[in-house]
Write a protein that binds this DNA or RNA. Structure first.
Lengths: 248, 248
DNA sequence: CGAGACATTGAGCTGACTCAAATGGAGTGG
DNA sequence: CCACTCCATTTGAGTCAGCTCAATGTCTCG
């Protein structure tokens, strides 16, 4: 096979201070949950948000921390995980710019249900949950937008449950690669690069399996020229195979 | 062991025509998603709903059917499932009175993501999704209530995913029994009866395992006097054991 | 160039599945 | 009320996908 090439991932994709006022407003304006909000309302709403930069690997909040804020990804990727045992984690989702996370509850005793970690350098806006609830109360559109987002996530979560229940490990991994490439894929060479540092452990935590098993399956896929992969990166060479693995 | 007693489940719990106008209004008034709505608004809203009775085992809608309606359980229990392969199903949730299901989307090409089946005789209200969206647009409170419900379900779904990923089958089943007894448990004799016909297959479809495995585990639990069980029924004799199976 | 983290590969084990067959409740009709 | 039938449930035996444990290989970065 080819000599191992160096990582094709963009490095330092996100710099500090890139999260300017202009970018903030632009992001909020384009954010799906503010769709349909007038420009002046948007300007008012913007005042409630704070921006903050997180380095790769930095924890934004921990599972079970008191939950007070709703957050919005401006730039970068955020990984949501839950811990089970010792080193057993479950990777719930990876978020890209425009997506929300954190809590919407304004109850005092509420805690975060997952841990949020910056998968890359990232810029994140945050708002106090009760402020966001006020916004939703004033603007039913916003509440409905957030509801639609949450519903879509619920459907997706149930889909994951279905797949975990019924598919063998190899097919679960194919599907995960497929979904990741749809969400984060960028053309690269003659394939689609998943533009994100992604370890075997990340994939294992998504598929509910072990790093070793992921490694074995990825090795086989590479041997069959369906993907190319290296340390923390994956490209899909044959999307059709990945998408239609049912027949295999 | 004791002689097998007859099924302790209430029969014909729900009769046809029990779903009266009075009950409808009462149910809508108590429904979590209409919490905080004034009485006259409630009266207006009530006009949008239709009531319908379903017999045990009757399908309310199928996965992939065109989705047009949002529904509310008035009486009985509704089972939500998804199909995977041949006889492989996944049981997503069992709903009790006051819970909503169906779709909130008003897009024309939308379809249901799951199949809804009456687990017992049931009475169900339904409303056209776009009408419900109008109600949410007029009353942000309602939208926020529905959002809170959906968020809670999302968290619960992720919890299920976590457990499926990390727990061995026996503990998954303990947890399912625990959750079911919290939601549907009624005192019965010296235990808590899960008031609902519940087959080994239902439990298997919840736990992502096979009926035989469920049967083996339930037999062991019965032998240890932790539960008592028969054809389509379960009582929990030792809730503490079920709840704290971590130590076992 | 060295260290540390990530990844690969091998070997053996086992929890849970599948296939198969027997048993037992619950409703039905006579 | 009893016999019968259907279907849920139980139990056994054999198999294997995927895990764990362990050792080795290889990027990346300082």
């Amino acid at each position: 096979m080819n000599k191992r090439r160096e990582t094709p991932l963009l490095k330092d994709h996100i710099e500090k201070h890139q999260c300017t006022i202009g970018l903030r407003l632009e992001m909020l304006g384009k954010a799906p949950f503010f769709k349909g909000l007038s420009a002046d309302k948007l300007g008012m709403v913007n005042k409630y948000f704070n921006a903050r930069h997180f380095e790769t690997g930095e924890v934004i909040y921990f599972e079970n921390d008191p939950a007070t804020r709703l957050r919005v990804v401006v730039n970068g990727k955020i990984k949501l995980t839950r811990q089970a045992h010792e080193d057993k984690d479950v990777l719930i989702d990876i978020l890209k710019p425009g997506e929300i996370f954190g809590t919407l509850s304004d109850l005092g005793d509420h805690t975060y249900n997952e841990t949020a970690i910056a998968q890359t350098n990232s810029c994140v806006l945050s708002i106090i949950s009760s402020d966001f609830r006020s916004i939703m109360n004033e603007n039913a559109t916003v509440a409905i937008n957030v509801l639609d987002i949450t519903t879509a996530r619920l459907i997706s979560s149930r889909e994951n449950f279905l797949e975990l229940s019924t598919l063998p490990v190899d097919k679960r991994i194919y599907r995960i690669l497929c979904k990741l490439s749809e969400k984060f894929g960028e053309p690269y060479g003659n394939g689609i690069l998943i533009q994100m540092p992604l370890t075997r452990k990340d994939l294992a935590d998504m598929a509910g399996t072990s790093t070793e098993t992921v490694s074995r399956i990825m090795s086989q896929l590479k041997k069959d020229d369906i993907i190319d992969t290296g340390r923390q990166w994956v490209t899909i060479l044959n999307p059709d195979y990945i998408a239609h693995m049912d027949e295999g």
